[in-house]
Design a protein around this nucleic acid. Structure first.
Length: 371
DNA sequence: CGATTTTGACCCGCGC
DNA sequence: GCGCGGGTCAAAATCG
């Protein structure tokens, strides 16, 4: 197919784009493959009763901060705090499983290292990034350079799952490369596998699949962590190929973004179109067939599908509003250095989540591409 | 020509 | 131990 949407762009969309317009977001961190969290009362409501994470959710004004910190530990090279605020080793803190499903909302299912330490088989937890394995805090084995397949117990993998829309998918500033696609039992839509293409040894992985509940929603799972800083510029590798948006990308207005989305929508009916930033195109490829078969999920438990029920933290959509700050970053770096994202890379000149462009939404994205 | 996508095969975790 | 299902590999195709 010649009109495939650019995969990179697609997968780049891990950054959240939500409707929020306030300043409740936190910033994404350099190596953090996951979107940062924002703090909202909602989170408190949902989780405070469900968890008891010393140092994670506490009395701080920003209940999310703790979570974010833990996340950062997971994703960043920065050494994590040794203990929780209460002095209790976080590794020993019981972690009840919680899942909250909110259709049409983003969901984060988190398995941060600290929380995971008390899971059954600790030895199975590994970080490929040496710097992540902070010996004093985590008893993770040192990164093993061992190249071949590194498989952890499936239910032990640290994973962050999030539901997002097409446009949100498009906001991912990381460069991803697709390395596989598999039909998932029980789901009409295939799952697409991506790895970070910025750095060869980067262990960051991303899975994207369409939500069986709502084809307009994409379930994105992040595993592993980046072993390199967030690309300052969209590297030549980053989605450089298959890009057919040169024209649109050169324009410096929001319309170009909207246009791109329109393109996506138009093409989606037949093939997905060659749009560079189409967040979900890869998904659609396989989906097309599935959709034709009539999505017939006898009973989908949830969008999360077979996510591990245990050891999972689900974060409501509202809490995941990192887009704003993230976007700030885009803008900041964009104008000057190019900022390593769709915009800086020239794929987009304006953020998709601006009021203007927001109208050109993910709704366009249904339908699916070819193959 | 280099990078990415596609896709069947292979590997392996996990439940029975 | 076996089989299923999911994750990854890797060769070939594709694209700019």
């Amino acid at each position: 197919m010649d009109d495939d949407w650019d995969l990179h762009a697609v997968v780049r969309g891990c950054a959240a784009v939500t409707t929020t317009s306030t300043d409740t977001t936190t910033t994404t961190t350099a190596n953090n493959p996951f979107p940062s969290f924002s703090s909202t009362p909602n989170f408190h409501e949902v989780h405070q009763d469900s968890f008891d994470f010393p140092g994670l959710i506490d009395d701080r004004n920003d209940p999310f901060q703790g979570l974010q910190e833990i996340y950062q530990e997971f994703c960043l090279d920065a050494p994590p705090p040794a203990t929780s605020s209460s002095g209790v080793d976080t590794a020993t803190v019981p972690v009840p499983a919680v899942q909250v499903f909110q259709p049409h909302r983003e969901i984060a299912q988190i398995q941060p290292p600290l929380l995971q330490m008390n899971m059954q088989t600790q030895e199975s937890i590994q970080f490929k990034n040496p710097t992540l394995a902070s010996p004093s805090h985590h008893s993770f084995p040192a990164a093993n350079p061992q190249p071949i397949r590194q498989r952890r117990r499936k239910n032990q993998q640290m994973k962050m799952v999030r539901q997002m829309t097409q446009e949100e998918l498009s906001a991912d500033s990381w460069a991803w490369r697709k390395y596989g696609q598999k039909p998932i039992k029980g789901s009409p839509y295939p799952r697409n596998y991506y790895r970070c293409s910025t750095s060869k040894g980067c262990a960051a992985r991303k899975q994207v699949e369409r939500s069986p509940n709502d084809p307009g929603i994409f379930v994105v799972s992040y595993t592993g962590e980046h072993t390199h800083p967030r690309p300052a510029h969209r590297s030549s590798l980053a989605g450089s190929t298959r890009s057919k948006f040169s024209a649109a990308s050169k324009s410096n207005n929001i319309e170009s973004y909207a246009l791109l989305f329109q393109k996506g929508s138009v093409s989606s009916s037949s093939t997905a179109s060659g749009s560079t930033f189409s967040p979900c195109s890869p998904l659609m490829e396989g989906e097309a067939a599935a959709q034709n078969d009539d999505v017939e999920m006898a009973e989908e438990d949830d969008g999360g599908g077979d996510e591990d029920d245990e050891n999972v933290i689900v974060i409501p959509n509202d809490l995941m509003n990192d887009d704003e700050d993230m976007f700030k970053g885009f803008q900041d770096s964009d104008h000057s250095s190019g900022g390593g994202d769709l915009f800086s890379s020239g794929l987009l000149s304006s953020p998709p989540w601006t009021p203007t462009s927001s109208s050109a939404k993910a709704s366009n994205f249904n339908g699916g591409g070819g193959s």
